[in-house]
């Protein structure tokens, strides 16, 4: 009699285990391995050869296009992360200083863009940044410039600005959460010991919110580097990024093995970024334990 529930228990536990490990394995790890395997095949004309070779990786490192584009993309995404932190931190700081319902209402408003379609946001930004867009026309109307500016029209700068605007909520949220976790009495203690507001900020708040800043930066960087749609839509001819190259390998060039190889390389970059973030974030956060 007593054995039965235990037996059922074990079955349920087995199913739970299978779901916990099975889902990530089936839907994340296996496809990734698929990419890895595919990247070792090669293409001749339109014919796919199922033989293992490193020719795709050799091409990546020897061709003079790919490594510079990857480097440029990494720099771009670091800039995006930097911009998001620079604008997100003050917003998060302001938010965490608010009281009660006002705080969470405003936070919800800031997060609303996350629920909107990516494509709609992109078109909105295009109409702001374009040569004849809102921004240029406003500047002309204000008499600040005579001719439309071109430095943010369909180039890498446009990609930088667009990605920053799109990803800003991903920076605000972790920073806000880390600021919320700082006990208020630490600020009282700092003031009590004679610290000015600026000293309390730089010596107490900023160091304690650093784990949040690092995870915000990691978040934004990883999301930005995997994006190919934004550069495609606002990058024009010069706004070329690694994501677009991968996209073209799968699309126009129809070279899936080479596209897979580039994807594996990008995945490696992302993994390194996450590890670096975890290392620094963990080191700072480790103090709390």
């Amino acid at each position: 009699m007593t054995a039965k529930p235990i037996e059922a228990d074990r079955i349920w536990r087995g199913i739970a285990l299978l779901a916990a490990y099975g889902l990530p394995i089936f839907f994340i790890l296996l496809p990734l391995c698929g990419f890895l395997v595919y990247s070792l095949f090669w293409v001749e004309g339109t014919e796919l050869h199922y033989e293992l070779t490193l020719v795709n990786y050799r091409r990546f490192f020897t061709d003079e296009i790919y490594v510079p584009v990857l480097r440029q993309t990494v720099v771009l995404c670091l800039e995006v992360a930097g911009l998001c932190i620079a604008f997100g931190y003050p917003v998060a700081y302001f938010l965490s200083g608010l009281k009660g319902r006002k705080k969470y209402t405003l936070l919800m408003l800031l997060l609303v863009p996350l629920l909107m379609s990516y494509i709609i946001k992109m078109y909105a930004i295009r109409s702001i940044l374009g040569g004849n867009g809102f921004l240029n026309r406003s500047l002309i109307a204000l008499g600040i410039i005579d001719q439309p500016l071109t430095f943010f029209v369909f180039n890498l700068n446009a990609v930088l600005l667009t990605l920053s605007v799109l990803l800003l909520p991903f920076a605000i949220l972790p920073i806000f959460l880390s600021l919320e976790r700082i006990p208020k009495n630490l600020l009282e203690a700092s003031a009590d010991l004679g610290g000015s507001n600026a000293q309390s900020f730089f010596r107490v708040i900023l160091p304690l919110s650093l784990p949040g800043v690092i995870s915000a930066a990691t978040f934004v960087f990883v999301l930005a580097i995997g994006d190919f749609l934004t550069p495609q839509m606002v990058g024009g001819q010069s706004g070329f990024t690694f994501g677009r190259i991968i996209y073209s390998q799968f699309g126009t060039a129809f070279n899936w093995p080479f596209g897979s190889a580039l994807s594996v390389i990008l995945a490696a970059v992302v993994i390194v970024a996450i590890l670096v973030g975890a290392r620094f974030g963990g080191e700072k956060a480790g103090v709390h334990r």
Binding site: N185, A189, D192, L193, G194, G195, S196, V287
Partner: peptide, 27 residues
Amino acid sequence: FNTVFQDYALFPHMTVAGNVGYGLKVR
């Protein structure tokens, strides 16, 4: 005046020496 707080309110990211020296540091 200086305060000993109920739950101590020590700065978790500073060492004991850093915590104790804080008042002098900010001066």
